[in-house]
């Protein structure tokens, strides 16, 4: 059932939505994760508390917690089925708390980069 307020709500102009990747939040006590090749998805960066820890410079002073945001970008046109397959494969090796699909809205990324 839709309420009256729902049907009367302000609408944002619609843009075409494209699935382009997945952010997966990995829990590990073993430091910055290193991933296998997952075919349709390739690791782009890893951040910890919002700070990029791979690739590139990491200060020795940087405090890491046991929760890493791992951004996997699609290497080809992908569907939800590809995401399911990818997460099933990832789950065999890694414990994760959440996954967030990454969409482009028109030409704009609907997700932020890490610092």
């Amino acid at each position: 059932m839709l309420t009256k307020a729902t049907t009367g709500r302000a609408k944002r102009p619609a843009k075409p939505i494209t699935l382009v990747g997945v952010d997966v939040y990995i829990i590990t006590e073993n430091g910055i994760p290193a991933f296998d090749d997952y075919g349709a998805f390739k690791i782009e960066f890893i951040s910890n508390r919002g700070t990029k820890v791979w690739p590139g410079y990491v200060s020795e002073d940087l405090m890491l917690v046991n929760w890493y945001r791992c951004r996997f970008m699609a290497t080809k046109a992908v569907t939800d089925t590809d995401v399911d397959t990818f997460l099933t494969a990832l789950s065999k090796k890694w414990k994760w708390s959440a996954a967030q699909k990454l969409w482009n809205y028109g030409d704009e990324a609907g997700f932020s980069k890490a610092y």
């Binding site: 609408k11 952010d23 951040s47 508390r49 919002g50 967030q100 609907g110 932020s112 890490a114």
Partner: peptide, 28 residues
């Protein structure tokens, strides 16, 4: 100075909804 909603974890989770993760850690 390093956590909270400044962790730069933001997503458009639908075409009309944006979310920003507020990250607070015990050691931080």
């Amino acid at each position: 100075n390093t956590e909270d909603s400044y962790a730069a974890i933001e997503h458009m989770v639908s075409d009309e909804v944006a979310q920003c993760l507020k990250v607070i850690t015990w050691p931080g």
